[in-house]
Amino acid sequence: MDKLKKQKPHIAVGTPGRILELIQLKKLKLKDVLCVTVDEADRMLAEKSSWDAVTEISKRIGRDKQFLFVSATIPETLSEKTATFAPFTVQIEATGQLVNTEQVSHYYVECEARDKIDTVRKLIYAEDIQKGIVFVNQLERLTETTEKFKYRGLKAASLSSDSSKQEREKVLKAFRQGELHILVATDIAARGLDVDDVTHIIQLDAPSEADSYLHRSGRTGRVGKSGRVITLLEKRQAYKVEQLKRDLNITLQKAGLKKGRLEI
């Protein structure tokens, strides 16, 4: 707040709740604001408290300003939800595929549920992963997976919504600097996480929907670099291969572990 008083910023970046709080405290002045950008708009829309704050901020700024709503996936209800403060919207779509299939290879490995953690561990050794992210769907699974990795000598740590800001920053710093090789994460890490040179995304738990796959896979193959996405599926989940192919226009190749190597 001292910095806001001494150095009037050109750009203020923050969560909707914190930005609104600073406006209410009159630490951020709105009279000169020309543009409001909402990143990860679909996620904001899904979280009522965040969207309520976005709406309040936008109403205070006024309808004669520019609003940008950005996301890899835009919900159909967005225009309806923004109509009160941004009544005239234009949708702009980037060209190309939703999912990177040029630099990124997409595979799936069949295994039993009880073998998943051990299979991921073997994949990490087989691929000699120095910087990879392992995604799980549930917080309970997060701790179990991380502890088993560490017990087997892997340099791993977890990242979730239950972690404090300081804990997340500490883990991400270690991951970026190479002190950690494996980040075990829930979907909180799939959005906005930009770490250079992530070579592998392993989905210990298959994503429940295509949007989740899109965001997770986007953590690798960035800025023209190559990457691999490996999804573990139980036999009963075989339908997901066709589902992802249909929804995301990608082909998942079947792979398996043989003699300590990943074979396609």
Rank of each mutant, 00 (worst) to 15 (best):
G192H: 10
Q166I: 10
A190F: 13
L139F: 09
L159C: 13
I129K: 00
A174I: 00
D128G: 14
G178W: 03
D118G: 12
L123E: 02
T143E: 11
Y125C: 01
S158P: 11
Q138S: 15
A174E: 03
F149M: 01
Q130N: 11
A185Q: 12
L139N: 14
I133P: 00
T143G: 10
V120L: 08
T119N: 09
A189L: 13
A185N: 10
G132E: 02
R168F: 09
L180E: 00
Q138I: 11
G132T: 07
I133R: 07
Q130L: 08
E127G: 01
Q166Y: 14
L172K: 02
T119S: 07
G178K: 06
K170W: 01
F149R: 13
A156C: 09
Q177N: 10
G192P: 07
D128S: 11
H181R: 05
E140V: 14
L159F: 15
Y125N: 05
I188G: 13
K131Y: 06
L139T: 08
H181M: 03
F135C: 04
R121L: 05
S161E: 15
S164N: 10
V171K: 05
T143K: 13
R191S: 06
T145M: 14
E167L: 03
L139D: 12
K131P: 00
K150M: 07
R121K: 12
G178V: 04
G192Y: 08
K170D: 05
N137T: 09
Q166E: 14
T143F: 04
L159R: 09
K150P: 04
R191E: 14
D118H: 06
S163H: 12
R191H: 12
I133G: 05
A189T: 02
E147L: 14
T143Q: 13
E169L: 04
I133Y: 02
R191A: 09
K131D: 01
R168W: 08
L123R: 05
N137W: 06
A189S: 06
F149S: 07
T186G: 13
Y151K: 15
F135A: 10
R121T: 05
E127F: 00
A156N: 06
N137R: 11
K148D: 10
V134P: 06
A185S: 15
V134W: 04
R152A: 08
E169P: 00
I124W: 00
Y151W: 11
G192D: 08
R191L: 12
V134R: 01
A174K: 07
G132I: 00
V120K: 08
G153C: 04
A185L: 09
Q166L: 14
